[in-house]
Amino acid sequence: MNIKYAIFDLDGTLLDTIESLIKTGNSMLKELGYEPRSNKEFRKFIGYGAKELVRQLIVAAGDEEAKQLEEAYKIYMQLFEEYCVYKVEPYPGILELIAAMQERNIPLAVLTNKPHQMTGRVLATTFSEDTFAYVLGQSTRFPRKPDPTAAHYIAEKLGAKNIQEVIMIGDSDADIQTAKNAKMLSAGAAWGFRGSQELIDNECDILLEKPTDLIQHL
Results as ranks from 00 to 15, higher is better:
Y134K: 09
L10A: 09
V85R: 08
D147W: 14
P92C: 00
I176S: 03
S27A: 13
E129M: 03
V59Y: 08
E64W: 13
T126S: 14
S38P: 12
D171V: 12
I7G: 00
M101Y: 06
D11F: 01
A72H: 09
A124E: 04
G188W: 06
M118A: 11
S128L: 10
I206Q: 02
Q102A: 10
S27Y: 06
T131W: 07
I167L: 04
K74Q: 08
P148F: 05
K183V: 13
K51N: 10
Q68I: 03
G170L: 00
Y153G: 02
Q177G: 06
R104Q: 13
R194P: 12
L53S: 07
Y76V: 05
Y91I: 02
E64L: 15
T212G: 11
D63Y: 06
G120P: 04
N2F: 13
K51I: 08
E209P: 06
E198F: 14
P90E: 07
L199Q: 10
E81Y: 14
A100N: 05
K180D: 15
Q68N: 13
I22M: 14
G93I: 10
L207I: 15
E64R: 15
K44G: 03
A66R: 02
T140Y: 09
L214N: 01
I167E: 05
T178W: 05
D173C: 12
N26S: 12
K30N: 10
D205C: 02
S172E: 07
Y34D: 05
Q164K: 15
A190Q: 01
I46S: 03
A190P: 10
L207N: 09
K210W: 08
Y73I: 09
T13Y: 03
Y73N: 15
A189D: 08
L79G: 13
T149Q: 06
S196A: 15
R144G: 12
P115A: 05
S139L: 06
E52L: 14
L97S: 06
M77H: 03
L53K: 09
G192A: 08
A124L: 07
H217G: 07
C204H: 10
D147P: 12
D205P: 01
A155M: 03
K157V: 01
K210A: 03
H217C: 10
L21H: 04
T212Y: 00
A150F: 05
Q197C: 02
L111W: 11
R43H: 10
H152A: 00
D175A: 10
E103Q: 11
D201M: 02
K114E: 04
L214D: 04
I215K: 01
I167V: 11
T24A: 14
D201W: 10
G192H: 00
K87D: 04
A109T: 07
L15F: 03
G195M: 07
I7M: 00
Y5C: 05
E129T: 15
P115M: 00
V122Q: 00
S128N: 05
E19L: 08
N202T: 15
V110I: 13
T178E: 07
E82N: 13
G195T: 11
E81M: 07
A190N: 08
